[in-house]
């Protein structure tokens, strides 16, 4: 895929992420038996925040959204898997550094939780990647996709998809794993001190990240053999949308877990799904 096309897809993702968030808010509201805000509400929220004063300005907010946007670009470009993972992790690091630099006790606790979560969730995701990479014999995303299209779904890829789906809620920062923010415990935790444009950038980055994770699963882990060009784009968009829908439904159906329970859950996922995926892929099935 050319740089131009990847660039266009990235910009499209950045612009459309708040809309998708708005649709998901509406969907969640329907599950709650509420009317919910109009679907363009997230744009209004961001616009309002950009117009407000910033009392805790930090370059980390810009870095955060830049990291997520670059990761989107690499995925759209079907580039190097390792830089993708690196950028995604770097965005989490930005968030943690921001919360720690503010010195608010709630933020510090939230930052600590974010670190604990990505220490355990990152390997779950990395193992899923690794199992695909072992089979394709490459760390290039385009090779992974081609391999998936040619050989279809195997046992190891089923485990990899399972691991990705289980890691999804935490990667998106959604319930039952929104521990770093945990509004009813930590009053917003990592983002507690953020306001105005800084908060807007973080929020925008977060909705983009949610879209990115869904896009990743749809694009890499659920192959659609035979689709190319425009049809590939349309199929990926539909799959992405369905995955976001799923994530929102799960979010509405679970209460928040405690950090020890969340870590325990992912420790089990790591053993049951991620390691199995790697084991099967080394066996070549």
């Amino acid at each position: 895929m050319s740089y131009l096309q990847a660039g266009i897809i990235t910009i499209l993702c950045i612009l459309i992420a708040p809309l998708l968030d708005g649709i998901m808010r509406k969907w969640r509201a329907r599950i709650h038996s509420r009317m919910g805000p109009p679907i363009h509400q997230t744009y209004l929220d961001l616009l309002k925040l950009f117009g407000k004063e910033d009392i805790s300005r930090s370059i980390l907010a810009v870095l955060y959204i830049a990291c997520v946007a670059s990761a989107t670009f690499i995925l759209a470009l079907q580039g190097d898997l390792l830089s993708f993972v690196y950028l995604l992790t770097a965005s989490s690091v930005c968030l943690v550094l921001y919360s720690l630099s503010m010195g608010n006790p709630f933020g510090v606790v939230g930052g600590g939780r974010e670190v604990m979560m990505f220490v355990i969730v990152e390997p779950v995701m990395a193992a899923a990647f690794l199992s695909c990479a072992i089979k394709a014999g490459s760390f290039n995303i385009s090779h992974l996709i081609t391999w998936g299209n040619v050989y279809g779904v195997q046992i190891s890829s089923l485990f990899a998809i399972l691991a990705m789906f289980l890691a999804m809620q935490a990667q998106m920062g959604k319930l039952p794993f929104d521990l770093a923010e945990a509004e009813t415990e930590l009053i917003g935790g990592v983002l507690l001190e953020a306001s105005g444009p800084t908060l807007a950038l973080f929020k925008w980055g977060l909705v983009l990240r949610q879209l990115l994770i869904a896009y990743l699963i749809a694009f890499v882990f659920i192959p659609w053999p035979g689709a190319t060009g425009a049809s590939l784009f349309i199929f990926t968009a539909i799959k992405t949308f369905i995955i976001l829908f799923l994530a929102t439904t799960v979010e509405a159906l679970f209460p928040r877990l405690r950090i020890d329970q969340a870590l325990g859950f992912y420790a089990r996922v790591l053993i049951a799904a991620s390691f199995m995926a790697i084991a099967f892929s080394t066996l070549g099935v």
Binding site: I31, H32, S33, R34, L175, P176, D178, A182, E183, T184, A252, L253, F254, P255, R256
Partner: peptide, 16 residues
């Protein structure tokens, strides 16, 4: 209580 635990769906349903 559901709201405190982040279980907003049941929170809304109980209030409904």
């Amino acid at each position: 209580a559901c709201h405190i635990l982040g279980f907003d769906t049941l929170f809304m349903q109980f209030w409904r």
